[in-house]
Simulated scan of single mutants.
Amino acid sequence: MRVFLAGATGVIGVRLLRLLTSAGHDVAGMTRSPERAAFVAALGAHPVIGDVFDADQLLDSVVDFRPDLVMHQLTDLPDDRGRIPDHTERNNRIRTEGTRNLLAAASVAGVRRFLAQSVAWTPPGSVAAVAGHERLVLEAGGVVIRYGQFWGPGTFYPDGPPASPRIHIEDAARRTMMLLHAPSGVVVLTDD
């Protein structure tokens, strides 16, 4: 399967990139950072340097790759968990404008499979953005994956699990792989 992975160098994106390429999928891994393109290539994927907010460039990248599946694993979160509230508007923009741009690019490219990251709780200041994001994905016939809070290496909770809902990052990636052919709908992935 040809998979366009938006958010390939994020905390779950890196794990999905490894699993997808190890399973023999042909993957285009999108990252905003030119410095991370070599990392994407080293994992066996085609690096795509792009920004989900540049709709024209995104459209060209998706159409050129001709994927069977577009996977939306984008967020805009800080490295410091205490600064999450400062990033609410930026992360909401990923959920709204970013999702619209990815869905539009997938549609023009004729992609019929779309998986998108969401959350299994309601972050403060994000009720409308999360609901709108999920509605857009479902209206397009995609799969919404509501993850619990990630924990494990590289997450905001590296040393132990947070309060529920939660999911270990490795388990989240492994269970996401089982959804590549899932029918449209909402899937909740948590440890609980």
Rank of each mutant, 00 (worst) to 15 (best):
G7T: 01
A8P: 04
V11N: 15
V14T: 15
L17R: 08
L17I: 02
L19K: 13
L20H: 01
L20Y: 03
T21I: 02
S22Q: 15
S22C: 01
G24W: 02
A28N: 09
G29T: 07
R32S: 12
R36N: 11
F39Y: 14
G44K: 00
I49Q: 12
G50S: 09
D51Y: 07
D56R: 15
D56F: 09
D60E: 15
D60L: 13
R66P: 00
D68Q: 12
M71D: 02
D76H: 14
P78S: 00
R81T: 00
G82N: 11
P85Y: 00
T88H: 07
R90E: 06
I94Y: 09
T99K: 08
V108E: 14
G110H: 05
R112K: 15
Q117Y: 11
T122M: 12
A131H: 13
V137G: 09
G141K: 01
I145R: 07
Q149D: 01
Q149A: 14
P153R: 13
T155P: 01
T155R: 02
F156P: 04
Y157L: 02
D159Y: 12
D159K: 11
G160Q: 07
P162G: 11
A163K: 14
E170M: 03
D171V: 13
T176F: 04
L179F: 05
L180R: 05
S184Y: 04
T190Y: 05
T190H: 06
